[in-house]
């Protein structure tokens, strides 16, 4: 009985030969490989698919990570509804809204950065979108610094120096604990995202990405958008629940 050929076990690369760009490695089996194809994948499509799926699995753990804090928020808000309204009324809705828009703009520029890599745009164009994304991410953190400074100067940081002149100091302190935990964890994710984007930008500048290989841009884009989604929920839940405090409630 003749031995079966490689292709009958792994039909992928035979029927869908990858688009080859740049240096081609030969002498490894019967097929030419994309230089960025790792050996444990059949082809570039499978590599992208596996990386995307892996990132989503990580993002699911991130959903649960933030989910614990959202659960704490839900429980404590249910226990202290009026105190949360009173405490939230002290946050600046305007800056919260500005930061929401800043993050949405950065998500758009991130999507455009991925697209520019997919369409094999010039490295310069890819770098421009990535730098724009990092710029808006930095603006977001800058606004956060201004807000945190305000909380520190007004003794709104939970702990021995917490001062609340309103009716519900205990509930307000819980609200501000959650405010700092949730926005702090979110800001940490932004900082990590900026670090990732720095690496991706350097890679893009070296001309690493084109239509045949853009997996790192795609995967870091997923992370960036996820951080944006967390803020989409944090903004109304933290900043907007106190607008009518004292208006007949």
């Amino acid at each position: 009985m003749p031995s079966q050929s490689h292709s009958e076990h792994f039909p992928g690369p035979i029927h869908n030969p990858p688009v080859i760009k740049g240096e081609v490695h030969k002498g490894h089996g019967p097929h030419a490989h994309h230089p960025k194809l790792q050996h444990h994948f059949d082809d570039m499509d499978q590599q992208l698919e596996a990386s995307t799926l892996g990132m989503w699995v990580f993002l699911v753990t991130e959903i649960m990570f933030f989910g614990g804090l959202f659960m704490a928020y839900l429980m404590y808000r249910w226990a202290n509804p009026t105190a949360f309204q009173e405490a939230s009324a002290h946050l600046d809705k305007f800056w919260g809204a500005v930061n929401t828009i800043v993050l949405i703009v950065s998500s758009l520029t991130m999507a455009m950065a991925v697209r520019s890599a997919q369409t094999s745009a010039k490295p310069k164009t890819q770098v421009m979108w990535l730098v724009a994304t990092m710029f808006f991410g930095t603006v977001f953190l800058g606004v956060k610094v201004v807000e945190y400074t305000d909380k520190f100067t007004h003794n709104l940081v939970p702990g021995p120096n917490f001062v609340w002149t309103g009716q519900y100091p205990a509930g307000a302190e819980i609200f501000y604990s959650l405010y700092f935990c949730m926005t702090g964890l979110h800001a940490l994710h932004m900082i990590i995202g900026l670090g990732m984007m720095t690496v991706i930008t350097v890679m893009a500048r070296r001309g690493t990405f084109d239509g045949s290989y853009y997996t790192p841009v795609e995967v870091s884009g997923l992370y960036w958008h996820f951080v944006d989604i967390v803020w989409i929920f944090l903004f109304p839940l933290l900043y907007l629940i106190g607008a009518h405090y004292g208006a007949g409630h």
């Binding site: 429980m75 249910w78 202290n80 509804p81 205990a170 509930g171």
Partner: peptide, 20 residues
């Protein structure tokens, strides 16, 4: 997570408004 945790708290009724 939300459903099961809140079903516990909601069915006891000893927390709501306790700190306000």
């Amino acid at each position: 997570l939300f459903g099961i945790t809140m079903s516990d708290y909601l069915s006891r009724g000893w927390m709501v408004g306790s700190l306000r």
